[in-house]
Simulated scan of single mutants.
Amino acid sequence: MDLGIHGKTALVMGGGGGLGRAIAAALGAEGVRVVIADIHEESLHASYEAMRSRNVEALALQWDASDLSLVDGKCAEIEARFGPVDILVNNTGGPPPTPASGQPASLWETQFRAMVLSVIALTDRVLPGMRERRWGRVITSTSSGVIAPIPNLAVSNALRMSLVGWSKSLAREVGADGVTANVILPGRIATDRIRFLDEAKARREGRELSQVVAESTASIPLGRYGEADEYGSAVAFLASNRASYMTGGVVRVDGGLIASV
Score class of each variant (00 low, 15 high):
R195P: 01
V164W: 01
L163I: 08
R204E: 15
R207D: 09
A202C: 07
R137Y: 00
S162R: 02
V212S: 04
E208S: 12
I189F: 11
L185M: 08
T180F: 06
P186V: 07
N182T: 02
E205F: 02
I189T: 12
I150D: 03
S143V: 10
R195Y: 12
A158V: 10
S141A: 13
I184M: 06
T191W: 02
S156I: 02
S162P: 00
R193Q: 14
G187L: 04
G206E: 07
W166K: 07
A176N: 14
S144G: 10
A202F: 03
G145Q: 08
K201Y: 13
T142I: 01
T180S: 12
A171I: 05
A176E: 14
A158R: 04
V179N: 12
S167Y: 03
S144Y: 08
S162L: 00
R172C: 12
G175R: 02
S144C: 07
L163A: 07
S162T: 12
I139C: 01
S169I: 08
A181S: 14
I194Y: 04
S156C: 12
R193C: 09
R131S: 08
I189D: 04
T180A: 11
E173A: 11
L153D: 07
R203H: 09
L185I: 01
R195Q: 12
S167Q: 08
N157Q: 05
L185T: 10
V174D: 03
W135T: 06
R133L: 10
S167V: 04
A200G: 11
I147H: 04
R193L: 15
S141P: 00
G178C: 04
S210D: 14
R131A: 07
Q211S: 14
V164A: 08
P151N: 07
A148T: 14
A190C: 04
T191P: 04
R134L: 11
W135Q: 09
W166A: 10
A148L: 10
W166T: 05
E173W: 06
A148H: 08
K201M: 15
A202H: 06
V212Y: 02
W135G: 07
V174G: 03
I194A: 10
D177Y: 11
G145S: 13
S210Q: 14
G206R: 09
F196H: 11
E208D: 15
V146H: 01
V183D: 03
R134C: 08
Q211N: 09
S167H: 01
E132A: 15
E199W: 01
A200P: 05
P151E: 06
N157L: 01
G206V: 08
G178R: 08
P151F: 06
K201V: 12
T191M: 03
S141T: 15
I184A: 07
V179E: 08
R131H: 03
R193F: 13
S210E: 15
R207L: 15
V183A: 04
